[in-house]
């Protein structure tokens, strides 16, 4: 159910998503070498970017939890970790679909691919460690520590293509200074994709935090499941 204060945000996010679809599928030309498959960049890169951003939020929230700045940070960090895990998995899946026609393989043990899987496992650790103890406060602290420590995988993943030999191409935009070797319409499609994913990600995290708030406020067991259903 839409919440009142998210309505403008939802509209902006929907608009950004539509703009990304049009620029990515229609306005941007097919790549000279890779052909139409290169359009997967406009969703693969935003998914990875959203995962990086989500993990940053999780790490900052984790620090706030460890500094005892209030339980809301625990819920923000958890919601961001859930989004990040999903986006990392999505980036891997889209990368495989892109890799098959262009690289020729679904998967290879390239440092970037391995680092991305390790980042996914770091997110999953952050989510799973919460329930290791039966105690909610200890679980929150464990998740905070895992979130702060796991964040180390973000720079390792991003810079893996610059630090080591990989099959994966180096970054075209977030890279050492120099010209961005991307045609302007393609860059616009990429920027639109990143914007849409970021806005939708914020929306998902905000809704999830509200659902977790409601679950924490309600005394009964299994409310979190009901709240999840409402938010979905």
């Amino acid at each position: 159910m839409p919440h009142r204060d998210t309505c403008p945000h939802s509209a902006v996010a929907a608009l950004a998503a539509s703009a990304a679809l049009v620029t990515g599928l229609v306005l941007a030309p097919a790549d000279a070498v890779q052909g139409e498959a290169q359009r997967l960049m406009y969703v693969h890169v935003p998914a990875a970017w959203t995962a990086y951003t989500a993990f940053t939020v999780t790490a900052v929230s984790g620090l706030a939890v460890l500094a005892r700045r209030g339980t809301v940070w625990d819920r923000v960090g958890r919601a961001a970790a859930e989004l990040g895990a999903g986006m990392t998995a999505l980036a891997v899946a889209l990368g495989m679909i892109w890799g098959r026609p262009v690289w020729g393989v679904w998967w290879t043990w390239d440092p970037r691919l391995v680092a991305t899987l390790a980042m996914l496992l770091a997110f999953l650790t952050c989510l799973a460690v919460r329930r290791w103890h039966g105690d909610a406060a200890r679980g929150a602290r464990g998740a905070a520590v895992a979130g702060v420590a796991g964040f180390a995988m973000v720079p390792v993943t991003h810079f893996s293509v610059l630090w080591w030999r990989t099959l994966h191409q180096p970054p075209s935009v977030l890279r050492p200074p120099g010209d961005v070797p991307v045609d302007p319409p393609m860059l616009a499609a990429l920027a639109a994709g990143v914007l849409a994913f970021t806005l939708l990600g914020c929306l998902v995290v905000a809704r999830r935090v509200r659902a977790l708030d409601a679950a924490a406020a309600a005394p009964a067991e299994h409310v979190s499941r009901a709240a999840l259903g409402r938010a979905a």
Partner: peptide, 12 residues
Amino acid sequence: LMVKHSDEYRAA
């Protein structure tokens, strides 16, 4: 055999 493509993206 795998293709290692560059970080360049250009229109045809």
